[in-house]
């Protein structure tokens, strides 16, 4: 009795002291509730027959206990292909795109001339601000088989044109490389920040022990970066089934649809342009659920290996 009263008093005095902080939290929380959680009741659309004039609560349940649209999606071969392509492109992005900024950060960190380092850093992260529509326009100017600058150059040197954009295999390569080109500089920033946080005494100790440049990178810088790398890896594994729209859509053309049709494009063609909102919501929900599962699994795995994880 008395202990609980004491606790209560403690809580009260705590609140009296800090209520302003909590009051200030009202704004962001209100924002999230209004714009993130309330709209979520539209998730029901995935299980109901969509009607533009009814609220989601009034809409009729879809057939098959509401799972009609999930069944439709999974019996649609285009969806299966889209799923496969999404996984494939995201995995390639992970394999090639994930290490790239780490390597770049290590290289930049070793640069002796600070001015040159800063200049390079700025140059490599500027593409981040270009939209994919612009990048795809540039890609066409550079890579088209007969009018593209690079292919014209190759032709002049006596080589054949390389079908960067019109052959499915090459297209995947172009897609991944352009992705790295666009994002590598930006993603480097966080690693560079982490590197500055590494205790310089460690480097000095390593030098005293006779370590060279590469030894220092291997034994000091990389271990120092490990927590950051793990967190970012978990986060990107959580994105494994998420699907960008503008990048594959802008870069795609009719000859490479076998590899470029990802889930977001499927949703766009069938759901938005085909006006099947229930179907697209079902697909979106499926994607989110898988992403959440991946996120939790990756986090659990990281913890098992003795890392801190993200929560």
């Amino acid at each position: 009795m008395s202990t609980s009263a004491m606790n209560w008093n403690k809580t009260l005095s705590y609140l009296r002291r800090y209520w302003v902080l909590y009051a200030m939290l009202i704004l962001p929380i209100a924002f999230f509730i209004t714009f993130r959680y309330i709209p979520m009741h539209y998730i029901q659309i995935a299980f109901k027959e969509y009607s533009i004039v009814q609220s989601p609560w009034e809409m009729k349940w879809a057939d098959n206990n509401g799972f009609e649209y999930f069944i439709q999606a999974f019996s649609n071969r285009d969806f299966i292909y889209a799923l496969r392509n999404t996984l494939m492109l995201n995995f390639l992005d992970l394999i090639f795109g994930f290490p790239a900024p780490i390597i770049l950060a290590l290289i930049l960190n070793e640069l002796v001339f600070k001015r040159f380092k800063r200049f390079t850093q700025t140059v490599v992260y500027l593409p981040h601000f270009l939209s994919w529509v612009i990048i795809s326009g540039m890609a066409l100017q550079l890579l088209a088989p007969t009018n593209g600058l690079i292919n014209i150059l190759l032709n002049r040197m006596g080589f054949d044109s390389i079908p960067f954009l019109n052959d499915p295999v090459y297209w995947v390569g172009t897609y991944v490389v352009l992705g790295i080109w666009q994002s590598v500089g930006w993603n480097t920033i966080i690693y560079l920040a982490a590197i500055t946080g590494i205790n310089p005494e460690l480097y000095e100790a390593a030098s005293v022990d006779g370590a060279g440049r590469f030894r220092k990178i291997w034994h000091v810088t990389l271990p120092g970066l490990r927590p950051t790398i793990i967190v970012l890896l978990i986060l990107s594994l959580g994105q494994i089934l998420s699907s960008e729209f503008d990048r594959p859509y802008a870069l795609s053309n009719k000859l490479v649809t076998d590899v470029s049709n990802v889930i977001s494009i499927f949703v766009y063609n069938y759901g938005i342009r085909g006006l099947q909102f229930s179907l697209s919501t079902a697909v979106g929900l499926f994607q989110s659920v898988v992403c959440v599962i991946f996120l939790f699994a990756a986090n659990a795995l990281a913890k098992r290996f003795g890392e801190r994880g993200i929560w």
Binding site: L140, A144, P145, T146, N147, N166, N253, K254, L255
Partner: peptide, 9 residues
Amino acid sequence: IWKDFSLYP
């Protein structure tokens, strides 16, 4: 036929 025909939106 124009080789690049399918690339342009």
